[in-house]
């Protein structure tokens, strides 16, 4: 089942990327898809490490759009700091708890923190992230807690 999903995904990626549909080139594509399947099959025997995507797709798209808005807002803030005459920098390292159940959820939260300019995830721990902020204020804690809630909401409930 997993092999069929992989084959469809890889073939679609290859066809979209190539754009030239001559028999020779398409056969090269089929060959590379087979090679990748063979390699992943061997890797699965070595370690059974799998990525389970347990996200609600509709909620995730909503979160993605919200994230784009956040990126725009924080880009403007950091741009203002960079172009200001005396740069109002107020750096801080602080810890923010995360409530995601799955690894993927935690990765999305940590990457979202880093993607919004002004905050960078420096260290990941069991229940907390260590975050570095460029111009720290108390509001950062609230907005990051809000982001944490939104990422947790995109996770599938059945997985808990």
């Amino acid at each position: 089942m997993r092999a069929i999903t992989y084959t469809v995904l890889l073939a679609a990626l290859w066809l979209l990327w190539s754009g030239i549909y001559k028999p020779l080139l398409v056969s090269f594509g089929a060959g590379s898809v087979l090679l990748v399947l063979l390699i992943t099959h061997r890797m699965n025997r070595v370690d059974g490490d799998r990525l389970d995507i347990s996200l609600n797709p509709i909620r995730f798209i909503g979160y993605f759009l919200w994230l784009l808005k956040e990126i725009a807002v924080s880009n403007m803030n950091v741009t203002r700091v960079i172009l200001a005459g005396t740069m109002p920098i107020k750096q801080n390292l602080f810890r923010i708890p995360h409530t995601q159940k799955s690894d993927l959820g935690q990765v999305i939260f940590a990457n979202s923190i880093t993607l919004t300019p002004g905050t960078v995830t420096v260290e990941t721990e069991e229940n907390e992230f260590l975050v570095h902020a460029l111009s720290y204020s108390e509001d950062d804690l609230h907005s990051l807690a809000d982001m944490d809630r939104r990422v947790s909401a995109t996770e599938m409930k059945s997985n808990l």
Partner: peptide
């Protein structure tokens, strides 16, 4: 982002300047 990379006083601040380029 590039201006910030040059202007900012220390490494930790420059990190944020580079991420302006990388996201926006």
């Amino acid at each position: 982002g590039a201006i910030g990379t040059v202007r900012f006083p220390d490494f930790w601040a420059r990190l944020h300047a580079a991420s302006v380029t990388e996201s926006g």
